[in-house]
């Protein structure tokens, strides 16, 4: 486990998360905790439960069993103040889900103004600072559909950061992008990681995961099969299922750089 994981208190603790759809388990007793400033990457095939895990961790869906702690306090989907809890968690979706009727700066300023109750001018100021730090200052007054996919996804990141969350959850955010645009979004995540943002990232980008993660978790069939440092998971996976997954990933990744080869 990464050194910084031991030295800080856990920010997000998931314990025994279980989620069933029509009786079929999609999450099966998953336990995982994130220390402050830690970056954890979830890898696994489509349908392995990565997206469901993130949605449950963001309290967007009720659990069938298990508990979630944020900064030590128990939180749940059913809480009366669940909206306040969600402000402390940021999530970015694969499909951007920007608000098409609002400009870029309005997209980012909406939550600070409406959910945090900031004055409109202060919300816009915060939004503009975030956009500037992500290199999107000149796009502030455009509508989202005028932007490239990579720019839209970076706006979605800025929007998720606007409530100053303790943890950022990212759900395969480069999967819907052209390969050319993937790089700029991953670059944004690298600089966020460098700035100390605590992140839980579901991704298919193995090279990126190897590079940026403190810890890798391999999911299969809704179970957390194996976790460890990138070096260990990619270099010496213990579980046969992890080895098989990585073997298949490497055989199809072709010209792209795959770690641990």
């Amino acid at each position: 486990m990464a050194a910084r994981a031991r030295t800080h208190a856990p920010v997000l603790e998931l314990k025994g998360l279980t989620k069933r759809y029509n009786g079929r388990p999609v999450l099966d007793r998953i336990s995982l905790s994130l220390a402050e400033h830690e970056v954890v990457c979830l890898i696994g095939a489509s349908g392995s439960g990565k997206s469901t895990l993130l949605r449950c961790a963001d309290l967007l869906e009720p659990l069938d069993a298990g508990s979630i702690r944020l900064n030590g306090g128990r939180v749940a989907y059913e809480d009366r103040d669940v909206d306040a809890t969600r402000r402390k968690l940021g999530i970015v979706f694969q499909g951007f889900n920007l608000f098409p009727h609002l400009t870029v700066v309005e997209n980012v300023a909406l939550a600070p103004r409406v959910a945090l109750g900031l004055a409109p001018a202060a919300a816009v100021r915060r939004a503009k600072e975030l956009l500037k730090s992500l290199g999107l200052a000149e796009k502030a007054h455009e509508y989202p559909d005028r932007l490239s996919g990579g720019q839209q996804q970076r706006v979605a990141i800025a929007r998720a950061l606007a409530t100053e969350p303790k943890v950022l959850l990212l759900d395969e955010i480069t999967s819907a992008l052209d390969p050319v645009l993937v790089a700029e979004v991953l670059e944004t995540l690298r600089s966020l990681a460098a700035s100390g943002m605590t992140m839980l990232i579901a991704t298919h980008e193995m090279a990126f995961a190897a590079d940026v993660a403190d810890r890798i978790c391999y999911l299969e069939g809704g179970r957390l099969v194996e976790e460890g440092t990138p070096r260990r998971i990619f270099g010496a996976p213990r579980d046969a299922r992890t080895r098989e997954f990585l073997r298949r990933v490497r055989s199809i990744s072709g010209g792209r750089r795959a770690p641990g080869r």
């Binding site: 967007l60 608000f99 409530t163």
Partner: peptide
């Protein structure tokens, strides 16, 4: 997904 994005922001 639009409402979910808004709820995820804490609205």
């Amino acid at each position: 997904s639009q409402e979910r994005a808004a709820r995820a922001l804490g609205l």
